[in-house]
Amino acid sequence: MTGALKKIIYNCKQATFLIEKRTLGKITAAEALQLQVHLAGCSMCRTYQKQSMLIIRLFTGFPSDKIRLDDAFKVKLQQRIEKEMNKN
């Protein structure tokens, strides 16, 4: 086993970093292998990986269609716009 592989087996900090980098960008073939070896033996980082994906899903799937600007603010905004228009 190479030094890099030995090092990664316990290194959850590096493994979680690679998980993030792989999700959003690119990792090298060597890094992908390191990560695979690590995940095979580390259930905590497998849990992390699953939850990391879930967090993205929760963040981007935020139900924004139900959100509305409150009416009082809208009224004020409308008045402000009309006032600004009359200035010109």
């Binding site: 316990y10 900090k13 590096q14 905590m44 849990t47 939850q51 879930l54 929760l58 139900p63």
Partner: peptide, 26 residues
């Protein structure tokens, strides 16, 4: 670089397809 004991990731133990739980988690 190993997880410290108090920070071990633990499963949330929820059905990821349950919309109510997801809403709560969100």
């Amino acid at each position: 670089g190993h997880w410290n004991t108090q920070h071990y990731p633990k499963a949330f133990g929820l059905d990821e397809n349950n919309p109510l739980l997801l809403k709560e988690l969100g």
